[in-house]
Amino acid sequence: MIRIENLSKTYGTGDAAVHALKDLSLEIKDGEMTAIIGTSGSGKSTLLHALGGLDTELSGKIFYDETNILEMNDTKLSEFRLKNIGFVFQFFNLIPELTAKENILIPLMIGKIKTDEKYFSELVNSLGISERLSHYPSQLSGGQQQRTAIARALINKPKVILCDEPTGNLDKKSGNEVMELLKKLRLEYGQTIVIVTHDPEIASSADRIIHIEDGMIV
């Protein structure tokens, strides 16, 4: 379970201070698919980055089960992220010099973990990219790039998948396909999924929708 207690984030100081998150508290159950929805600048991406431990300059607490990730140093937090969290970004963030397969295997390379070939084949077949593994990102369509990014997020079998506007850079058809895949993969592997989006239609496919405005849950 993920538990957020009194989380606040302020950018800048004095009159120029912007409160991205204001004393926010929240609980996300294991295996739940949660959509965080809000307008641009509402603080939803800040919340997602905080959940992933990418932003640690915050006040409050973020517990994964009993572990407060905001108390960890960078090395421990990176290790925690490697083992427990998978990220899917709006712009895919694949490494252009690496093939799709190499991109998928990056987390294993970072963690110096041996590839589970059976799981890898199963994953790329589920995502429909088994024929595209030797291609470079520039040779893949937007939908294929996002599927590669999802495979990369899942390769370590993390407990939590954090998606930042995963369909934001895709056409409607590809976006729906990605959402269907995320739902299918959750059923297969049982991950907790948190999706940040501004699209109510995408959010409607989640188990739970959280609205954020001005850094607060409304």
């Binding site: 992933g52 990418l54 960078d74 090395t75 990176s78 290790e79 992220r81 490697l82 083992k83 990220f87 970004f89 963030n93 694949l94 490494i95 990056i106 987390p107 970072i110 963690g111 990369r152 370590n156």
Partner: peptide
């Protein structure tokens, strides 16, 4: 920077 931040989000520490 974008590549390094991607690797950081995937679990690579800043020292790495």
């Amino acid at each position: 920077t974008e590549k390094f931040m991607t690797l950081h989000s995937l679990g690579l520490s800043f020292s790495g």
